[in-house]
């Protein structure tokens, strides 16, 4: 089976005058297959979020190649770059801040639809359907991000990411800022979506909680200091960690 998202030797170096260079992501390669959920775990500073930025081209890679649906997107610019967001979408770590405080949730969710040429009234109906799909009442379309709770906001953010019907969904610590019960709700929503969309939706699930990854992901990459420390089936890795860092990570949650 051909991979839908393929990253090869992805590297990002942050450098600033007078400061030491920081290699956030160091020659990371991975493949994401259609319908699969690939987890990326690691402690903070291990480069997980940078990977989310790199594969969505919000951050430019220093080195390496990103292939989306067989197309090299590493150096795209302008209109061509904007077009990749019809295939790949990102759910942010901080739900409240990922919505423009001056726009209603409905406008935020429907923005990608309007930008891709859908009429406003039609987009409005689609937004209501998406809200419903993500377990929110349609009245949320008219609310502002500061009026809803974190969990509701994250549901809206997932609705926004799914609006354009992407094939790849990158969840960058999508549940980290939420409390445990809401976290469970969001995970259930994601699982339901996976079941419904089957091979049409692949998820890159970035997380620091190995228990969540074990439940949810088909494969997992363990990141450590910008490198891939280990890769495999989550259950195998939990049972039989092959790496010092993975061992510590598992011990820390048990």
């Amino acid at each position: 089976m051909e991979s839908i998202l393929y990253a090869e030797n992805l590297t990002r170096v942050f450098s600033r005058k007078g400061q030491q260079e920081l290699v956030a992501v160091d020659h990371v390669s991975f493949e994401l297959f259609p319908g699969e959920c690939l987890g990326i775990i690691g402690e903070s500073g291990s480069g997980k979020s940078t990977i989310a930025g790199l594969v969505t081209r919000l951050i430019d890679p220093t080195e390496g190649r990103i292939v989306l649906e067989g197309r090299d997107i590493t150096t795209l610019r302008g209109k061509e770059l904007r077009d990749i967001y019809k295939t790949i979408q990102l759910v942010f770590q901080t739900p409240a801040e990922s919505f423009d405080p001056r726009c209603s949730l409905g406008d935020g969710i429907g923005e990608s639809l309007v930008n891709s040429g859908m009429r406003r009234s039609e987009a409005g109906r689609e937004v209501e359907r998406l809200l419903d799909e993500c377990g929110l009442d349609k009245s949320f379309a008219g609310k502002y991000p500061f009026e809803v709770s974190g969990g509701q906001c994250q549901r809206a953010a997932i609705a926004r990411a799914l609006a354009i019907k992407p094939k790849v969904l990158v969840c960058d610590e999508a549940t980290s800022s939420l409390d445990v019960t809401i976290q469970k709700d969001i995970m259930e929503l994601l699982m339901e979506l996976r079941k419904k969309k089957g091979n049409d939706l692949s998820i890159l699930f970035i997380c620091h909680d190995i228990a969540l990854v074990q439940q949810f992901c088909d494969r997992v990459l363990v990141m450590c200091h910008g490198r891939v420390a280990e890769e495999g089936i989550p259950d195998d890795i939990v049972r039989n960690p092959g790496n010092e860092y993975t061992k510590r990570l598992i011990e820390s949650i048990l």
Binding site: L90, D100, R102
Partner: peptide, 26 residues
Amino acid sequence: EMPYIRAARLAGCSNLKIIFKHILPN
């Protein structure tokens, strides 16, 4: 640098649109 500007980029907004629709009102 706010996440919502990145989100606008993900929604397919061009730079001009980001400036006029998201940065200026804020």
